[in-house]
Design a protein around this nucleic acid. Structure first.
Lengths: 245, 245
DNA sequence: TCGTCTCTGATACGTTGTACACAAGGCGTC
DNA sequence: GACGCCTTGTGTACAACGTATCAGAGACGA
């Protein structure tokens, strides 16, 4: 489990950060392990079998190495997860700089969604200090917003807003999708009927009349892409209004 | 760890759900444990020491009971977490029905944020099928949107959008806040200087010029409430535009 | 009073993250 | 070429976790 809340300040405050270490040129002699190999293996496991399958032992097995070997490169499982997240964000293709702000933010959002859906475990792991490749996202967004006349605070708030929406929306989406997969239902139709029996009792309590009705009337329940884009366009419309367009 | 991805369909599909079980009137004779007592204790631990401190053993100790006792009420740790989340959402005060849609959605969002900030672990735990008290949120939102002339799909998308933004934004906020607390810095000023040494290397790479500049120019970096409301108003503006107002 | 049903206790197993001490191999210096 | 050192990987070990299983204890209908 991840160390968090209660963890005491760890004594050696000025320990060199993961990223600074990685950036140092020559790793060393006789390296069979590298951060890249570790990240690739770990991400592979997570993609194939879920984040819970990523244990230090399993990772070691995959790398053909002793359980403790990876600890030379990451200080613990927390840093391994950071490394994995950064590795995934590295594959994010940033929009080129000559689009207008709205187009840039829009494709950025859509691409982040794609990456997160490809590696669903990332959405539930990334927190705390941003990794280098994560930082490239606000950098790119701010570049797109530069020169449209926003003060620094508003520009940053806009970035945060879009990021927040994307993460929140994809998170909901993933939760929904996984809920279906966990139960071994392949199609959404099969899933709905299976889920129905679980939800049926809740609905029959009569406590959620509107929800029940709207669910019944909705016809694009399965079009997650449309739902995402609709919400995204709402957010962008709101931002545009703030820009006085 | 939570069961997820790989978990096979669990044989007894029609096992009665947690919520249906809880709703059955008389628990039984000689109850020293109740779902309420379990939830209260677990939430107390999580609030005080973080979600990782919530172990079945610790919970049992807190309840003055054997480690396995709670398993009579929840089928495993997953259900315990569901129970905790529902317990927290129960304290959410829903807006009354006579406000206009915008006011209703706005106060709903602000109240969810408050609840999530009070119990930061909830944001990183709630997924999958909604709990009864979670379902009250879309119910309330749809009630507010009822009669303003949205088709069912758009109404649901609007609900999802607001929920996504709130969860995403609070999640970022919590990550930020915790990053500070973990390192034992009390004030944000102290934190920034401490964090600076970590970020300094990244910034000195020169890879994030815009980010670096905007961070320097921003003056409301610490006003998380303003940031949240700014983003929320963007989202609501976008929705209003969609309503043709 | 007794059987039965429900709730709780005790014990135990397999898995996890990781601390610690040690071995093996490449490089600079003589 | 030999030596010592520093980096990298190994082996072993431990505490804590989730939870399966079974035995015991208390209350209730008969």
């Amino acid at each position: 489990m991840l160390a968090q809340e209660g963890k005491p300040p760890s004594g050696d405050e000025d320990r060199v950060s993961l990223w600074e270490r990685l950036d140092r040129p020559a790793p060393a002699p006789r390296v069979t392990l590298t951060p890249e190999r570790i990240a690739t293996a770990a991400v592979g496991i997570a993609d194939a079998e879920g984040i819970d399958a990523v244990t230090m032992r399993r990772l070691a097995t995959e790398l053909g190495v002793a359980p403790m070997a990876a600890y030379r490169y990451v200080s613990g499982k927390d840093e391994l997860l950071e490394l994995m997240v950064d590795f995934v964000y590295a594959e994010l293709k940033l929009p080129d700089g000559d689009a207008d702000w709205r187009e840039a933010l829009r494709t950025l959002a859509l691409r982040i969604r794609e990456v997160l859906l490809t590696h669903p475990w990332v959405a539930r792991v990334s927190w705390g200090a941003p990794t280098p490749h994560q930082l490239a996202v606000p950098e790119s967004a701010l570049a797109a917003l530069d020169g449209v006349g926003l003060d620094a605070d508003t520009a940053m708030a806009v970035c945060t807003t879009v990021t927040a929406y994307v993460h929140g929306a994809v998170d909901l989406e993933i939760g929904q999708t996984r809920m279906l997969r966990v139960r071994g239902w392949s199609s959404r139709e099969e899933a709905r009927s299976g889920l129905a029996s679980q939800m049926a009792w809740l609905m029959n309590t009569g406590r959620y009349p509107k929800y029940n009705r709207y669910i019944g009337e909705a016809t694009r329940k399965d079009d997650l892409q449309w739902q995402f884009e609709t919400g995204l366009d709402c957010v962008l419309d709101g931002i545009a209004a703030r820009l006085g367009v």
